[in-house]
């Protein structure tokens, strides 16, 4: 086997997959932006994606905030800079850990569920059935999930921000002996609107990407149980990698230096 040919084939397959994904994303955006919409389906997806993800995102945020307070205290106490703990917790959670960890958790929970559901509909001919019933599968299946994920992830992240900061607060007050007033004052002193806004913009992008990967891999699922299983795995893996990639890109746009 010629190794150059193998590299070439892999590169061409990558370009082809990128082209298919971008075309799918453009079609999905078109159907999200143009009527008719299905409000009942959007509301149901908002509940599935947003409301039912609250426990997992909340638990992730609270423990991340708690660990962050402990670790940063351990590090900063060596330089007598314990007062920086509140700021480090607030900035880390709002700018990075809130959106990224919530995005990854939602990619695992929601991206997988979307891919499995749409993939099963593909292999049981339910997507073909939609077409024969004069219903566009992009409008009925893809658009409600994309709209719901894009709108709800920022809300989830806002909740995660508050819970994460409060996790750090609880550890700092009850374990590390900080004064509640001083801790909260330092948090609000250091936190700027842009820190929270950048995190929410990231969450919007991540919500879009998670739903896009779930829908794309489910829609193109190969036949059989193995095909649906693969679609689910690809949705989670590609969603997580895209979240980490776009996290850097959005950070670069908001904080270039």
């Amino acid at each position: 086997m010629n190794p150059l040919a193998a590299i070439g084939r892999t590169f061409l397959a990558f370009l082809s997959a990128t082209g298919r994904t971008v075309t799918f994303a453009a079609l999905a955006l078109f159907h999200c932006a143009t009527p008719p919409w299905y409000p009942r389906l959007i509301v149901r997806q908002v509940l599935d994606i947003g409301y039912y993800s609250l426990p997992v995102v909340g638990l992730t945020a609270v423990f991340t905030g708690m660990v962050l307070a402990l670790q940063s205290y351990t590090g900063f106490s060596r330089f007598q800079a314990e007062s920086a703990v509140a700021g480090i917790v607030a900035l880390s959670i709002t700018r990075e850990l809130g959106p990224v960890l919530a995005g990854l958790m939602v990619a695992g929970r929601v991206g997988a569920a979307i891919a499995a559901e749409i993939g099963t509909m593909r292999v049981t001919e339910q997507i073909d059935a939609l077409t024969t019933l004069s219903t566009n599968p992009f409008r009925y299946l893809v658009a409600p999930r994309m709209i719901a994920a894009t709108l709800t992830l920022p809300v989830l992240v806002l909740v995660a921000d508050v819970i994460g900061v409060m996790g750090g607060y609880a550890v700092s007050i009850h374990k590390l002996g900080f004064s509640p007033t001083v801790y909260l004052a330092s948090t609000f002193d250091i936190l700027k609107t842009m820190d929270v806004v950048s995190g929410l913009v990231k969450a919007t992008v991540f919500g879009f990407l998670v739903a896009l990967m779930g829908c794309y891999h489910g829609y193109h699922s190969r036949l059989g149980a193995q095909g649906v299983g693969q679609a689910t795995t690809y949705a989670v893996v590609s969603g997580s990698i895209l979240i980490l990639t776009f996290n850097y890109i959005v950070t670069e746009i908001f904080f270039p230096e």
Binding site: E125, Q126, D128, A129, T131, T132, S134
Partner: peptide, 19 residues
């Protein structure tokens, strides 16, 4: 396509009912 589909009914092999 939608107008044409209105003329058709289709019974799929596995039923393809929406779960």
């Amino acid at each position: 396509r939608d107008a044409l589909m209105a003329k058709f009914g289709m019974l799929f092999q596995g039923g393809a009912l929406f779960d």
